[in-house]
């Protein structure tokens, strides 16, 4: 017993010692998506700059929005998706970083210097880009996997074994692409079709959740799951029969971005991190970890073999990538209604 008390005392001491040293150091607080930040990248950044990094994670753009909107401060870097950037700017949640004046800006690929969500990179720089279709177990289904029919009109062997994201925007955008309806539709007749499709699909859906996708796929709990392309690589590495679909109807895709929120206490350190991420070598470390493309020219030569050869990063010729959109207020209201009636 005495031993335990000494142990607790010792660890409490060690803890407080660690805390004081952390306060003395320069700090950076990053708020990123779950399981999305390369530990090697953080280690390299800490070693080169002497800045201690603390990482916190969120599960959806909506969570990030609600958190910043509620006045939460203390984060220096946040990672909103392209379709939320405009909204964050409009709500005055981000600080200007004027990336074009930062060192390393010349490394950004031109597509991301003129993106439709932040032309000229006043507020953001690109972080990772990937697809949002689905992962499927080719042992459970033998036919052509590149169609959304498998999700929305599942054949017998996939019925009851479908996993979907728990995010109104992701699920509804996918349904809209599958139906050939414009994204963020404000037309009630079209949205009724979306709701009908999703309601019909619900009978065969096992779970709506954006967490634990990897475990569900690898354990065989589900045979199909809506998934991000990079995350699908890690599932495949654990179970070889898992493949990623690039549906012929169009592939929803995203680009996540680094930004500095209002109220950031360590603005200068955040800028250092942004400059660090515009170096090809560093962007490649992050890509190798997460399995997504980045927006930095010349990073491909630092990719490892697994990244270079993976089918998830090299889609079939002629794949139609569709960037999801930021909906208007009316579009968002319709989406929320469809989502709530689906889950009632």
């Amino acid at each position: 017993m005495k031993n335990i008390i000494t142990l607790i005392g010792a660890s409490a001491l060690a803890l407080s010692a660690g805390m004081t040293s952390a306060i003395a150091e320069e700090e950076l607080f990053i708020y990123n998506w779950t399981d999305y930040t390369s530990p090697d990248l953080i280690k390299k950044f800490e070693k080169e700059t002497g800045i201690a990094v603390t990482l916190d994670t969120f599960d959806s753009n909506e969570t990030l929005l609600a958190k910043l909107k509620s006045g939460a401060t203390g984060y220096d870097i946040v990672v909103p998706s392209h379709n939320f950037v405009e909204l964050f700017i409009k709500e005055d949640l981000l600080q200007e970083i004027n990336a074009s004046k930062l060192s390393g800006y010349e490394n950004l690929s031109d597509d991301f210097k003129n993106s439709f969500w932040d032309t000229g990179n006043t507020y953001t720089i690109p972080w990772m880009q990937g697809a949002t279709s689905f992962t499927i177990d080719t042992d459970a289904y033998k036919g052509d996997i590149h169609t959304f029919d498998l999700l929305f009109n599942p054949p017998k062997e996939l019925q009851g074994k479908i996993g979907m994201f728990k995010s109104a925007n992701d699920v509804i955008s996918t349904a809209q692409i599958a139906l050939g309806i414009p994204l963020c539709s404000e037309n009630p007749t079209e949205m009724t079709k979306v709701l009908e499709l999703l309601k019909k699909q619900k009978e065969h859906v096992k779970i709506y959740s954006s967490d634990g996708i990897l475990e569900r796929l690898v354990s065989g709990d589900v045979a199909v799951h809506q998934n991000w392309s990079g995350y699908s690589i890690r599932a495949r590495e654990k179970k070889a029969s898992l493949a990623y679909a690039f549906p012929k109807e169009g592939v929803p895709s995203f680009s996540d971005n680094l930004a500095v929120p209002q109220g950031a206490k360590n603005y200068d350190n955040a800028i250092k991190f942004i400059e660090f991420m515009m170096q090809p070598e560093n962007a490649a470390i992050q890509s190798n970890f997460a399995g997504y493309a980045n927006g930095v020219k010349g990073s491909a030569k630092f990719f490892n073999d697994a990244m270079r050869n993976s089918p998830e990063v090299n889609p079939p010729e002629g794949t139609n990538f569709i960037f999801t959109k930021a909906c208007s207020e009316k579009g968002i209201k319709l989406e929320a209604k469809v989502w709530e009636s689906l889950l009632q």
Binding site: E62, T63, N169, I207, Y208, S209, A336, L343, Q344
Partner: peptide, 25 residues
């Protein structure tokens, strides 16, 4: 309800959470 229920049919707790996230109400 979220972890064991599969989030397919809402309960009150999840409904509240939904209003603060994607419902934005």
């Amino acid at each position: 309800p979220e972890l064991l229920g599969g989030g397919k049919n809402l309960m009150l707790g999840s409904l509240v959470q939904l209003q603060f996230s994607s419902g934005r109400n």
